[in-house]
């Protein structure tokens, strides 16, 4: 796995320099949140503008890992489909989340919001949960424990491989990549 080594949280300068198609190896902390956790986060923001975990400047990872067997930090931990989080993403970007990791394309509204709030969308390899778990050095549940696999975990990652899909200039790797390889039948 190749890629540029990047420390988390992402700096303003780093976000500015990232381009769609860049392969990165992330080191630092990620926060998992998927469907049910998003629903609660957004409800919490609209109620009192607060979150149970400080996510300002942080990166959210759309993942629901398998349980950790004895002696392991975490089970399999790949990305889930991001599209399901689209309708709940903008309030979080507005709040100050700077990076999102998942798989699959985002809605036009989310893409616009990424440009507006200067945040990036990254993809990890879906279905490579065993490989990605090796890059997770610690895992701790920090909110919504009752949600089981959908709880919010704080993960410490080391050289976690991702690809930049949407940068702050409005570029989209899914569109550009497909265009480059599309053939007429």
């Amino acid at each position: 796995m190749s890629g540029m080594k990047v420390s988390l949280p992402l700096t303003e300068q780093m976000i500015h320099d990232l381009r769609c198609g860049d392969q990165l190896l992330l080191s630092g902390f990620l926060y998992t949140a998927r469907d049910a956790a998003h629903k609660r986060l957004v409800e919490s923001l609209s109620k009192n503008g607060k979150l149970p975990v400080e996510l300002k400047g942080q990166v959210i990872y759309y993942a629901g890992p398998t349980p950790a067997p004895p002696g392991r930090v975490i089970g399999s931990a790949g990305p889930t489909t991001s599209q399901r989080m689209d309708s709940m993403t903008i309030p979080l970007l507005e709040y100050g989340v700077k990076g999102l990791i998942g798989k699959g394309s985002r809605s036009e509204e989310v893409k616009k919001a990424l440009v507006q709030y200067k945040a990036v969308y990254l993809a990890a390899t879906g279905g490579a949960g065993a490989l990605l778990a090796q890059r997770i050095k610690s895992a701790e549940i920090v909110a919504y424990e009752d949600l089981g696999p959908e709880a919010i975990y704080k993960l410490e990652v080391q050289e976690f491989p991702v690809v930049v899909i949407n940068d702050i200039n409005g570029n989209d790797l899914y569109e550009a990549g497909q265009k480059a390889y599309k053939r007429l039948i």
Partner: peptide, 18 residues
């Protein structure tokens, strides 16, 4: 990555996918 993932999964007993 997917091929490496398959190797890690069967060797370490970690599910292929979460």
């Amino acid at each position: 990555q997917i091929l490496n993932n398959a190797e890690i999964s069967s060797r370490d007993g970690v599910p292929l996918c979460q």
